[in-house]
Design a protein around this nucleic acid. Structure first.
Length: 420
RNA sequence: GUGGGUAUAGCUCAGUUGGUUAGAGCGCCAGAUUGUGGCUCUGGAGGCCGUCGGUUCAACUCCGACUAUCCACCCCA
């Protein structure tokens, strides 16, 4: 019986890995320019970190985590997101004692037990950044700008930046009461999902796509209109910050984040090109999270960005990625002696950092030429008895078909000829 | 967790109203005079038609279950 990869996982094959390398290199370059430094945290953490950090009531914690007992009887969970582990590392290593803000980024696999669909896997990869230690709304704008800059450098178009404020614990509590008071008499007229949401996540009701719900909720109060002075000032600061750096945005009072830790700023970057899972980047501020995880009261802001979704958008927009480097020279050999010579020559060329390759399947010369063509080798060296005897090899340029003779033992000359 | 689609060669897919040796294109391998690729031509390998059960004289084709996969809901990156 054939063994398959687990549901919701995807191999990145050798012929495709260059796409990931390309995106990762762009990310690292961008983070460096913006002053974010990489943090690498384990793929698994104590379950409690996510229960506290992500929130006990969230779908992620309640039904989507890969949780198991290790042999020491500890409850372990594969990370479902990157922020909580980054926060844990920040606290555990006392980074809060260093000059603030602390700006870090990560590229990491994440695990969520969900039904796979377009743009959603059980193992997926996230690029995220976090800025700890300041409440300045301009750093919220900076964080958003890093996400937007990545899309820009990759040539991705047609994205929408949507921003909102989800308030702070103080004003959210008042607002929740107000919202529930509004919703309660409407409850029977809403769809069954919304009736469930009333208890679990009333904010989500505002985002329901059912027509009848939309009608009933036309006059519902929004968090955005009920912010306390502090949160209101912060949101104005964010908008001003985005204006200053010239980022277009849409204020969308319906944006809700699914993780409990968000406060004030919430934002999404959305694409219409990849099906229903259009949010490619989502994030916001989480001023209570570090304290909840056992650290000193410290504000923070960040985002997570799905790399598979990023790749999907690039694919659907026909954005080309520089291909991986091809073999520079293929060494075709005829006969045992020539094969030994090819082996030696190949390693000498590689020592000189030339991407050289030879035949390993005892193919005929013709088949070796075909193979060289197929792997897009730029040049082919042909070695046979005649060449060994004369100590001269022939280099063929595969683009124009021209051949030249070069002394067998002169690596410099060979390299010069093939770069011609 | 809920709903819908799909399952035939390595890949993308055909396969007539159930009927006898299951096909194509691409890919792979080998040839087209003796030591040279791309184009073309010829040949070859490769399928328990997802699995199990049922209907039938007869099932790739019809029915059921299971599994896998895709898409959508939920939710999220």
């Amino acid at each position: 019986m054939k063994i398959q990869g687990p549901k919701g996982t995807k191999d990145v094959l050798p012929s495709q890995a260059y796409k990931w390398h390309y995106i990762e290199s762009k990310i690292r370059e961008l983070c460096s320019i913006n002053g974010y430094y990489e943090v690498r945290t384990p793929v698994f953490e104590h379950t409690e970190l996510f229960e506290r950090g992500v929130g006990e009531t969230t779908d992620i914690v309640q039904k989507e985590m890969y949780t198991f007992m290790d042999k020491g009887g500890r409850s372990i969970t594969l990370k479902p997101e990157g922020t909580a582990p980054a926060v844990r590392a920040f606290i555990e290593n006392n980074i809060f004692n260093e000059p603030q803000p602390t700006k870090m980024y990560y590229i990491t696999p994440c695990y969520r037990y969900e039904r796979p669909q377009a743009g959603r896997l059980r193992e997926f990869h996230q690029f995220g950044i976090e800025a700890f230690g300041t409440q300045d709304p301009y750093i919220d704008a900076e964080v958003i700008s890093v996400g937007m800059a990545l899309f820009k450098t990759l040539g991705i178009r047609n994205l929408e930046l949507r921003i909102n404020s989800v308030g702070c614990p103080k004003c959210r509590k008042e607002y929740n009461a107000k919202l529930k008071a509004f919703l309660h008499p409407e409850l029977l007229h809403l769809c069954k999902f919304c009736q469930d949401r009333f208890n679990t996540n009333p904010l989500r009701i505002l985002d329901c796509k059912e027509e009848k719900c939309k009608e009933r909720l036309a006059n519902a109060p929004y968090m955005l209109d009920n912010l306390c002075d502090d949160c209101k000032t912060h949101f104005e600061g964010l908008k001003k910050g985005l204006d200053i750096i010239g980022l277009d945005y849409i204020v969308d009072p319906k944006i809700v984040r699914g993780l409990d830790y968000y406060t004030k700023t919430a934002f999404e970057i959305v694409s219409n090109d990849i099906g229903s899972q259009g949010t490619v980047c989502g994030g916001g501020r989480y001023d209570g999270l570090i304290e909840v995880c056992g650290g000193p009261s410290t504000p923070g802001v960040g985002f997570g960005l799905g790399l598979e979704r990023l790749l999907l958008i690039m694919e659907s927009q026909g954005i080309s990625i520089p291909e991986q480097e091809k073999i520079q020279i293929f060494i075709a050999a005829m006969g045992e002696k020539a094969n030994d010579m090819a082996m030696k020559l190949m390693f000498m060329l590689r020592e000189a950092s030339i991407r050289a390759e030879k035949d390993y399947l005892s193919r005929s010369l013709k088949a070796q030429m075909k193979y060289a063509n197929k792997i897009k080798a730029k040049n082919v060296i042909v070695i046979g008895d005649e060449e060994i005897q004369k100590e001269i090899i022939r280099i063929k340029n595969m683009e124009n078909g021209q051949e030249v003779n070069v002394p067998l033992n002169n690596i410099d000359e060979i390299i010069k000829e093939m770069e011609r």
